[in-house]
Design a protein around this nucleic acid. Structure first.
Lengths: 346, 346
DNA sequence: CTGAAAGCGCTTACAG
DNA sequence: CTGAAAGCGCTTACAG
């Protein structure tokens, strides 16, 4: 059997209270007693039972991280950023993915209740606020890219609108007029924000945004690939494709290549997120940079702020700016005639 | 305060024992009593305290997953595969990364002890067996790509040797003789195995493997990039580069392109792992396919086999075969003269 | 079918 | 500085 604090106490010839004190670094223990106990602990390789400890101390030293998905580099970067900070605090992460399914979010939340000291929730699709209400209000919660106006929660939101607007403006500056987008799905907050930004830029520049140029993907490579194939079937295909994340852009690039078109001379393509691999593919992908691992780190830092009472009751609402990251997958549109044609169609 | 089982019992007018019974699905509760209790539970949004439950039941419904790193698609795929299976069982995952640091492995293991019902450990670099010995022998442990002969643990090992050997043979069949490799580091088991396979194939085909063609990376994109730059500086550079994982291959491709060389006409390149993005980059990457997410799934399935006593005491040692995945980044070497030259040098 | 009681392994006032 | 005892929130024989 696993040894308990009682075994240690017996072997050291003290009470369990004293063992507990040295375990918790109390200064009210005679040095000699402490040493003896420490020796026994070492010898027995004793480690306190976290469940017992958690039961009485009401802390778990774990943070729950609930993500919508686990595919691709975006989420692994979020996890990595979160894990780094969490490790510095001697904490650990319980991850789970919800597949954008309310049932799974609920199950994960229920599981985490009592098992974690705080929750970081990323749910751009499912509105999880109702589920969140079932959690004790004492549990700090950080919402990452969630749809909410509830000032009760800490929130971190990427500037998808601004980023997409900036990218669209860049494409417009390059002379593109027929710019297709591949979205991440109608009900996805991030996709919606990016779409808003795209439309805003188009309108501001007096290029009527056409719904016919808005294609729906789902943030996966394969959806980018398939959607791009559809786009290229268009008689007079767009001169630029703006995929709402890099994974879809990567899929789209494959489709474009298979069609025999060159990037960026025949068609420009860009993404969003700036995942690590974006700079390595060829042509290197122009994208909207999002500090992905920082997102995870910020969320966890926020959690610890709350946990250490530094900001016990005030919630923070962070808006994360994005920044255009120009590389080689986009290019000035070349022929005047082409431009004219575009204008006409637009 | 959070409500406890006592509150539920009071409100339902029963004892906590009965509440506990309906919580655990005991059939010895009158239907009517059960209903009333269920109603109260729902109304109060009661959820049992996992710490208390864990303390007495000695199970946590969590599996620990300790990975060497969290960079790149490989590890996120392992997590994804593990998470999928774990969710089917109503379990969850506690992930942690060790950065190949014994201290961090130890800390993570200590943290997990008592918090998880089993541990999946991937540690190709640090020999973690000594650390593992401090864990209660009742805790099921699955070793993923670890350096061990200890039949006491369940093990899952990828056939790095066979995969690399097959890939090298393929390159040799294409006429390549000067094949450089980018390894993953000297002390890394996976890298070692792949190197063994490469050398074996070279020797078998009477191409003396030269240490001068073995370059050391560390499995990251940037190391692939930088190492490839070194390789291309060689007077008579190799006609093929075999990177020991796809991330390094992707980095190498960037370096090759920057040098103005075309792939595969000027130089062939291939990787290992077949991460999801490999098929999307261009040229699509020839790689050794590893069923990455299956690795996570297999490990977790094995864990549940143990947990459900189906195979309480027997350990399993699984050897995972790899399979060549030919795409467009490698090509037959073209000129006879070139071939001759190679032969000469080799 | 239901309840009183012991116990899981710890921490922490409360005494001394 | 140290120990006896209560209690954290649950489950599970043991009686009835």
């Amino acid at each position: 059997m696993r040894s308990s604090i009682i075994d240690v106490a017996e072997k050291a010839g003290v009470s369990i209270a004293t063992v507990s004190r040295v375990l918790n670094g109390s200064d009210k223990v005679k040095a000699k007693t402490r040493e003896k106990i420490l020796a026994v602990i070492n010898e027995m390789k004793y480690a306190p039972n976290p469940a017992a400890r958690g039961l009485i101390m009401k802390k778990t030293e774990a943070i729950g991280l609930l993500l919508p998905d686990l595919h691709g580099e975006f989420f692994s970067e979020v996890i990595r950023g979160a894990d780094e900070v969490v490790q510095q605090h001697g904490y650990h992460i319980i991850v789970s993915s919800s597949h954008n399914d309310p049932k799974e979010i609920e199950a994960a939340l229920r599981f985490m209740r009592g098992r974690v000291d705080a929750i970081v929730l990323m749910s751009p699709q499912v509105n999880a606020e109702i589920l969140l209400e079932n959690l004790p209000k004492s549990l700090p919660i950080v919402l990452l890219n969630c749809r909410t106006d509830n000032k009760h929660f800490d929130t971190i939101v990427i500037d998808g609108y601004g980023g997409a607007r900036e990218m669209t403006n860049y494409l417009l500056d390059l002379g593109h007029r027929r710019i297709a987008v591949i979205t991440g799905g109608e009900t996805n907050l991030e996709s919606e924000e990016r779409l808003r930004g795209y439309r805003a830029a188009m309108s501001e520049r007096n290029v009527a945004p056409s719904r016919l140029l808005e294609f729906q993907g789902n943030f996966t490579e394969i959806s980018g690939y398939e959607t791009a194939r559809e786009i290229l079937k268009l008689k007079n295909h767009p001169t630029a494709i703006f995929a709402f994340n890099d994974s879809m852009a990567i899929g789209a690039i494959k489709a474009i290549r298979e069609e025999g078109l060159r990037i960026p001379s025949d068609i420009s393509i860009c993404g969003f997120d700036d995942i690590p691999v974006a700079r390595y593919i060829s042509p290197s992908l122009t994208s909207v940079h999002v500090p992905i691992s920082d997102l995870g780190a910020m969320a966890v830092n926020r959690v610890f702020d709350r946990l250490t009472k530094r900001s016990k009751d005030s919630t923070a609402h962070v808006f994360v700016p994005t920044k255009l990251c120009l590389r080689s997958s986009c290019k000035k549109i070349n022929t005047i005639s082409n431009l004219d044609k575009e204008e006409h169609v637009a």
